[in-house]
Amino acid sequence: MRLLVLCTHNSARSQMAEAWLRHHARLLGVDLEVHSAGTEKTFVKEEAKRAMAEVGLDLSGHTSKTLLEVPDPWNFGLVLTVCDQAKEACPVYPKKTLKRHVSFPDPSGKPLEEWRRVRDALGRMSLFLVQSLKEGRVPADEELERAAWG
Rank of each mutant, 00 (worst) to 15 (best):
A86Q: 08
G56V: 07
E114F: 13
H9V: 01
R50D: 07
G123L: 06
A121P: 08
D84L: 11
E46L: 05
K65P: 14
R117H: 12
E18T: 14
E142A: 13
D141R: 13
P107K: 12
N10S: 08
S132W: 08
K65E: 15
A19M: 09
A12I: 12
P71F: 13
A17P: 05
E135T: 05
A48N: 04
N10F: 04
P111A: 01
K45H: 12
L6V: 09
S36K: 08
E145W: 14
L133H: 09
L80G: 04
L98A: 15
N10Q: 01
W20I: 10
T42I: 01
T8M: 00
K41L: 05
Q15R: 05
L6E: 02
P71W: 10
A147C: 12
C7H: 05
S64P: 03
L32T: 09
H62K: 04
D31W: 00
L4H: 11
L127A: 10
L68R: 15
Q85M: 12
L59E: 00
A37P: 02
E46N: 12
F43Q: 02
V79I: 06
D141Y: 14
V138P: 00
S126I: 03
E54Y: 04
P107V: 14
G150I: 05
K49F: 03
K134P: 00
V5N: 03
E33F: 00
D84E: 15
A51Q: 09
